[in-house]
């Protein structure tokens, strides 16, 4: 199962998307959901820190 492939085949170009993510039209939206959730959590934690300090 060892494959020796040329650089062209292993090139770091975006993969052709065969599958779509659930709930969203594109993976980009899914990634923004994760990053948006991070921003929301940091904001929430900041508010908690301010309220209880």
């Amino acid at each position: 199962m060892i494959r020796i492939e040329t650089m062209k085949e292993t090139d770091n170009k975006p993969t052709q998307e065969l599958d779509k993510p659930p709930f969203f039209k594109s993976w980009k939206s899914m990634y923004w959901l994760v990053l948006g959730n991070l921003a929301f959590l940091i904001t929430l934690f900041y508010i908690i820190t301010r309220i209880y300090s």
């Binding site: 065969l18 993510p21 659930p22 993976w27 959901l33 994760v34 959730n37």
Partner: peptide, 15 residues
């Protein structure tokens, strides 16, 4: 099972 499942698994961890 697929690229989608693997990505979703990692993003699940990210959430």
């Amino acid at each position: 099972r697929s690229l989608t499942e693997s990505r979703l698994g990692l993003l699940f961890n990210g959430l």
